[in-house]
Nucleic acid binder design. Structure first.
Lengths: 343, 343
DNA sequence: CTGAAAGCGCTTACAG
DNA sequence: CTGAAAGCGCTTACAG
């Protein structure tokens, strides 16, 4: 059942009556080939449906023509579930790779894995796209080492001043401000924040800080007693909201650091007899597909995952070509639905 | 900024005082190595953080150690959006590949692309996982050619009698029966079907047929005038439901061929002033993540995407090893929520 | 514009 | 158990 052995460039050369080197030149689009010769070779190539052997080519060129997308998540290493926010980037990352003529490898990684070793040193990939929430401080050192090794990578996440390597992320502070301002405009005064708000989770922290700024502009403050840690998952959101309720402090709005947290929180709120948005406004962050199906539909801060995916790949390719590139912060947008009580 | 040139097996050999061949044997886990020698080599390997060059290894072995997951969708070739049903398989496919020590390549494909050529002939992948809804009849010939070429592949889809190659799919007829039986038990008598129900879309057809059987068992019939074509998307579901309503025939239930169709249909129904589930029961198929967030939460037929992903990879690897494998049909399960009016 | 030749870094018969 | 050697299928200086 093994197929008839594949044609090689030497076979093509014989059939076209040229040297193997010339076949290679034709296929790599070299200009150093006579038009006639090129035609002849191309005809044979088409006829035999010949394809350049990727490994031989990569071995010789010392370039794999492949990018690796590594997903790492602290919480559930054995889960086959992927954070929907990253999932929504997958499509545009895949397409952007195709546009650059690159193949895309995808893999789950633990914090303990040797990312550069497994993908770059083994020549499997020319560059890495790092996606994943998790304790930033915990893998900062790891990123530092990647930089020292000269590994080419780009990560999605907060764009921080002294970070190792490049990031594509969104305007988390700006997004937080949009959320806070919306809540303020609706007359909310006691805003709870669900999600970690420490330097371990800089994206969440910036969202918190942005919201705080918006409240301050309105002469209000964020009460730290209304902040509950939560990683980005529905269950964590549910637990955090229950904890918030248990604290028995008054609040009239919940700003969830992510939509998943917001979804879990709405469930907990409803279970406790609190009405959304009548009793409490809920606003999320991300605008994942599930957000608009929530009940009530979730008002949230949109992050442009399509553009994010493209930028991630474009930036990485710039690095792979050996050119300089910079971190980028994407603007966010408020998406008003029903969960805050607007309209 | 290029990193210091990578160590090769020859470097390791020199440092360990053995031949390059021995280093290779140690790294490929050969038993033909003295325990002492092995220790010595492994120590050097660890110290230099040496990794076998993937391309040199694959070129020599004539095996890529990689599987390719090809997603093809007719409708929106330029969209970066992926059908959520396939997205939910991605996690388990990724993990299953890791378990088999295989890398996973992911790519969008057009029906016109040369799948085998681009991935197998070029040695990029040892086998293909084909995912995608689309006109079965249109690519049946293509699958036939893959078989003739000896390309190793497995697809997700209907398990049909004379199909080319192997499929992993679910019991579509059984699932259709479960849907029909549930509707019947609820007293519904005029069941509409949203989705293509022809041999071009065998999965949808089987679901239709299964539902029809369940109705027949109860002395009822499916009225073909209540069937409206729709591909698996929310917009198509919305349009199909509008078309159904426009036909002005009485119906008290909608069986959507997929959850996406059901979601779009519920929206159209509501817009037309019909209440779900009071006026019309709606049941979907797939149980995508969005289903339980729908309003009302969508009753649907569950397909085990986690197991599907594992089976897809396991079966493909069996083929890659040159062993015989078979198509598999997975059981479905009724998931009762609120959209049919049960409870 | 074209060909002969070297070499990318491995794996695996072949000898010993 | 180990080493010397061939060769996987390309790309790319080097000559002409």
């Amino acid at each position: 059942m093994r197929k008839k052995s594949k044609a090689t460039s030497l076979d093509i050369a014989h059939l076209a009556g040229v040297s193997q080197a010339t076949v290679s030149r034709v296929l790599s689009g070299s200009t150093l080939v006579n038009a006639e010769t090129r035609k002849r070779v191309e005809a044979v190539v088409r006829e035999l449906n010949y394809k350049v052997d990727r490994h031989a080519s990569s071995l010789r060129r010392q370039r794999s023509g492949t990018l690796a997308m590594l997903l790492f998540e602290d919480p559930t290493p054995d889960e086959s579930h992927i954070n929907p926010f990253f999932l929504s980037m997958l499509g545009s990352i895949t397409r952007a790779c195709a546009r650059h003529g690159q193949d895309l490898l995808i893999s789950f990684q633990q914090l303990s894995d040797d990312w550069a070793g497994d993908y770059e040193d083994s020549m499997k990939a020319d560059g890495l796209i790092l996606l994943g929430y998790g304790d930033y401080l915990a893998y900062q050192g790891k990123l530092q080492k990647l930089v020292e090794q000269g590994t080419r990578f780009v990560r999605w996440g907060a764009v921080l001043p002294d970070q190792p390597g490049l990031s594509i992320g969104c305007e988390n502070i700006g997004g937080g401000r949009q959320a806070g301002a919306h809540l303020v405009a609706l007359g909310r005064k006691r805003v709870a924040f669900l999600g970690d708000a420490s330097t371990h989770y800089p994206e969440f922290l910036d969202r918190f800080l942005g919201c705080e700024q918006a409240l301050r502009d309105a002469g209000l403050t964020m009460d730290r007693a209304l902040q509950v840690d939560a990683e980005s998952s529905e269950d964590a959101g549910h637990a955090a909201a229950r904890e918030l309720i248990a604290r028995a402090l008054p609040f009239d709005a919940v700003f969830a650091a992510s939509d998943l947290i917001a979804l879990g929180a709405m469930r907990a709120l409803t279970e406790s007899g609190l009405r959304v948005p009548e009793d409490v406004s809920v606003i999320g962050f991300d605008d994942i597909p599930m957000a608009r199906f929530a009940h009530p539909p979730l008002t949230t801060i949109f992050q442009d995952t399509k553009q994010a995916g493209e930028l991630l790949v474009d930036t990485l390719m710039t690095l792979v070509r050996g050119e300089a590139a910079e971190s980028i912060r994407l603007p966010t947008a408020l998406v008003v639905r029903k969960s805050c009580g607007a309209e």
